[in-house]
């Protein structure tokens, strides 16, 4: 399996960061960075990472089931993550999430038919003072309203 030169360079740096014989430390960063490039943790990726870090595949499976950002199913091109935890809930996060469901016509952890959008109701994303907040992939959007969400989704649609 081949990765882009940037990702290869990143992997090479990553493995150096951990004590000799303990390269397994690079596992979670490697999976996440590779997932960002490929779209999901595929069986091929799993086998490749196992080979490079000298770990058993089952050790990767254990980790996969635990961390919420790692996924075997490819997500939409724009992964919308709306926070509904306490600070966001108090300022309209639940309404925002309900609006996102309606606007996109999908529910939690679902993907639109064209593969453009996926939606997830997430726990605190550390943006409490600027609530309600949401993420599109890794981009934060603060002080959201249903109207701002509409125009954001419309502009993402036009980007296609």
């Amino acid at each position: 399996m081949t990765f882009s030169p940037e990702l290869e360079a990143r992997f090479a740096r990553l493995i150096e960061n951990y004590p000799p014989g303990r390269q397994k430390g690079a596992l979670i960063p490697m999976l996440l960075y590779a997932q960002d490039e490929i779209g999901s943790v595929t069986p091929e990726l799993l086998a490749e990472v196992a080979k490079r870090l000298h770990v058993k595949q089952v050790e990767i499976e254990e980790v996969l089931g635990y961390y919420t950002m790692l996924t075997r199913e490819p997500r939409g091109k724009h992964h919308i993550q709306v926070c509904t935890n306490v600070s966001c809930m108090l300022t309209g996060g639940e309404e925002l999430y309900a609006h996102a469901c309606k606007k996109l016509g999908i529910g939690n952890r679902q993907k639109t038919a064209d593969g453009q959008f996926s939606l997830e109701e997430v726990e605190c994303i550390g943006a409490c003072s600027w609530a309600p907040a949401m993420l599109v992939n890794y981009d934060f959007h603060f002080n959201m309203t249903p109207e701002k969400l509409d125009s954001l989704i419309d502009s993402l649609r036009k980007m296609q």
């Binding site: 960061n17 979670i28 999976l31 919420t68 790692l70 605190c124």
Partner: peptide, 11 residues
């Protein structure tokens, strides 16, 4: 030596 290490979604 210092480096960053990313988590992957876990409180």
């Amino acid at each position: 030596h210092l480096s960053t290490h990313t988590g992957a979604g876990s409180y």
